[in-house]
Structure formats: C-alpha cells, structure tokens
Design a protein around this nucleic acid. Structure first.
Lengths: 149, 149
DNA sequence: CTGAAATATATGCATGTACACACACTAGGT
DNA sequence: ACCTAGTGTGTGTACATGCATATATTTCAG
C-alpha cells in the first residue's frame, strides 16, 4: 500500500520545533485512543467516549453528584454540548437531573443505579483499550509527571 | 473561577489505573491546545486547526504534493472529512487538486503560492500557542521519546 | 480480453459540537 | 423593596465530522 512510506521524508515536524513534535505525538495518541475507545465502548456497551467519561466522573465522586458546569470542565466540552450530553444519558436512565436547591439556577447531575452498573461493565473495556493503544513510551513519562491533572 | 479546584478530590483517576491517568493528561493537553489553536489561528489567520495542519504537511513535503489519502492519515481525519477539508482549502485558493496521472482514481493535493504564504504567516502563531499552552512537564518527556511519530 | 474484486475519491445523510442568545435565578447597590 | 449586573442552563442554528454508499479506475484471475 504505502508508496513513499519509507524512511525518506526527513522533514522534521513543524520546521523541527520540539513543541510541534510534541503536539503531533499528542494528536496521534489522542486520535488513536479516541477512535479505539469510541468503537469498543460503542460496540460493547452502547456508550460514546464522552458519555463514559461523565459516568466515570460521577461514579468516582464520593457523593455521585456533580454540577453540570463541573462536568463540562472535567470532560472538556462546552456548556451546551454538556447539557445535551446529560440529556442523552438521562434519556437512557443512566443519570438524573437533580434540581437541587441552594442555587436554583443550577442543577446537580446524579448517577443512577443503572448508570453505575453500566460504568462498572464498561470500565474494564476502557482500561484495556487504553492499555493496548497507548504506547508504553508515552505511559512511563506521563505517569512520571502525573501530579497535575 | 474554579470552585472545588483545590487539592481535595482524591479519587484516583479511573480507579487509580495509570493508563487512565495518562489518558486524562492526554485529553486535557489536547483539549487545551486544540481550543487555543482554533481560536488564535482562526482569529489571526482565518484557519482552522486541521486546515493549518494540512498546509503544514504540504509545506514540509519536498515536492509540496500529497495524496489525499496520506493527508487523511497525517491529520487523523476520515477520508470524507479530508475530502471536504481539501474543498475548503481549494475554494480559498490555498491548495489545488491535481488530477495527476499514474493512477487516475487518485488525486494529488498541491499547495499554492498563497497557501505557502498563509502557512508561513500562521506557523509562528502555531508554535507560540503550543509553547504557551503545553506544560513543560509534558514537553520534556515527550521529546525524550520522540523518534516515532 | 472479459468480468469480479479491490482501491481512491466524492457525496447523501445523521449526529455531535460550538456559538449566540434566551431564560431563570442570585447578588448588591440605592 | 426595586432595579441592574452577573451567573447557570437550556435551545436555535450553522457547521464539521463519520458512516454508508456511489462512481471511477486499477488489478488480477480465467
């Protein structure tokens, strides 16, 4: 298949700037892992990547409860995309909008029993896919500087 | 802005699995850099991230020439998305579809003078944004294992 | 040489996302 | 109390993306 796939193309990424090389490694890893996750989580558990991420944050949280805004930040989506993501999850009974008080503008999103179960089923797939797709050369250095996330 | 942004939330990412922690670092870096690039490249040069990446690959290439398929792989987009991306760039006169021979199914995408100029203008912005957004803790380890890209 | 399978690209369609805006509510000054 | 500014979510709309498919071309078996 690959013609011109050999070792030639020596043009160093982005004029040879290290930041550009790093950026390309990030995009490559992200694209590969995201595609694999989307495929496997979708096929085996009927979940998208963002759906799973939200469930995971909720499952992790001591009170299984998050403000919509915090979820948006956690999964790196816009506020509007998060609102519709919550819609989809709620429509499937995996989370609930809890119009809790204290600030009656905001909502709390809580994970349901079904949601926790779905997450528990999908979590191993999630980890396995990541372990398989993320190159070991990436994992070590990333874990080394993991404090900030 | 960040309420609950402190050090509390000690639930280790994804049940404490290192791959999940690494994945979250990747998604965080990717989202931050992508958003910043989209904003700056769009505002200052009228280019999206994918548009710029395509121009950069073409500018780097010794013959300024790529098969559509190779571009798709390089920028991690689907074949159809790449086709339309080429449409947009061609509509603005930054690239040209070269129905070159040898395999009359395929096309070569070539960068125009205007395209090279636009890339030259935008490249510094690209590098600056990345340098500013990508955390130094990430850059060093990533550069260390940079051979494969 | 003929026809079937494979390959490269374009396109119809459904969906997810961001932006702009609307609405509900809170907070602070007067 | 009232009125204005600020904050948290939901919604209309435009657009980019992926999947399935259509079309053109090459390749290969017979």
């Amino acid at each position: 298949m690959g013609v011109t796939q050999g070792v030639e193309q020596q043009a160093p990424a982005g004029d040879g700037h290290p930041v550009v090389t790093a950026w390309r490694m990030i995009t490559a890893s992200h694209a590969a892992a995201f595609a694999a996750l989307e495929h496997e989580l979708g096929d085996r558990h009927g979940l998208g990547v963002s759906e799973f991420e939200v469930l995971e944050r909720l499952a992790e949280h001591p009170a299984h409860k998050y403000r919509a805004q915090e979820l948006a930040a956690a999964v790196h989506l816009s506020q509007s995309a998060t609102s519709r993501l919550i819609d989809r999850l709620a429509r499937h009974g995996l989370v609930e909008r809890c119009l809790c008080d204290m600030d009656r503008r905001g909502i709390y999103v809580t994970i349901t029993e079904a949601g926790q179960q779905r997450h528990a089923e999908a979590a191993p797939t999630h980890r396995d896919v990541l372990a398989q797709v993320l190159p070991a050369e990436l994992l070590e250095p990333l874990c080394a500087c993991s404090p900030a996330v």
